[in-house]
Design a protein around this nucleic acid. Sequence first.
DNA 1: TATTGTTATACTCTATAACTATA
DNA 2: TATAGTTATAGAGTATAACAATA
Lengths: 149, 149
Amino acid sequence: MAEKAAGTARPDLAAMVVPLGRALMAAEQPILDAHGLTMWAYAVLLRLDETPIRTQAALAEAIGADKTRIIAVLDDLAARRLISREPDPMDRRVRLLALTAEGRLLRDTVQAAIQDGEERLLTVLPAADRSGFLRALRALSTLPDLTLG
Amino acid sequence: MAEKAAGTARPDLAAMVVPLGRALMAAEQPILDAHGLTMWAYAVLLRLDETPIRTQAALAEAIGADKTRIIAVLDDLAARRLISREPDPMDRRVRLLALTAEGRLLRDTVQAAIQDGEERLLTVLPAADRSGFLRALRALSTLPDLTLG
DNA sequence: TATTGTTATACTCTATAACTATA
DNA sequence: TATAGTTATAGAGTATAACAATA
């Protein structure tokens, strides 16, 4: 306890989590590239596979992007028939978005490849740490606010 | 096991880690702001407090920044006497960097505030998950490469 | 000639503002 | 007039290239 001032017990959380996130994204990149998907395109496929979403703005919000940010992404996905994107007959201003069969297949293929790699990566951890890590990660990443003050 | 295709057991790691990192950085921001530090300036103070570093390029590399990126940061820190930055008498091309007493004090103050907040945040986790999380995080964030292929 | 640090430039990503079409 | 989507523009952040000083 006397030497507490000399060095810290652990690095700040952000100092560990942010670089880890960057490394994980970089590690996913080759897999996404192999299937012609950007990170945003993959995020769209993942999100659309959960629950149907009504507006593009809501989709953008859900994946943490700007509504203008995803338009080119949707253009590309629709052109490749990975998603459908049709005006809502009830309100022709909104575009209804949904995965096509090919879109769901691609999503499953890519995610399986990514999670296979992740499982292999996680084997470096002791079993107990590993399950605690995953549980903690899910808990923390679903917290609504997260303030330190 | 039959319903594996319908939804995945867990989100991709990057899908949890990256947003968590962003949230943690955002949560640190008010504390950094209160002390007039940017994230990069804080990263510099943290790094310089560990082991003396010889060149600016090496410092930039160590904190994951471009060498041109940190020049304005060093200008500001030096002007505020939080770091010293003098030409090496042995090789006048290089600038020797070191924390001043005030720099170390500020570093300690800010990190204490941040880690206090983090400890409070971590209390939402069961004790077992929490220690596993921290151990796993340290292990993964110090891995040299991290590939999924 | 090679290297450190600096400045100037260009590029990428993202957000803001202006526009079209529907309501 | 208000809203969904789109396009055009501007801004932040980052990296690349050119430059000055020193070796």
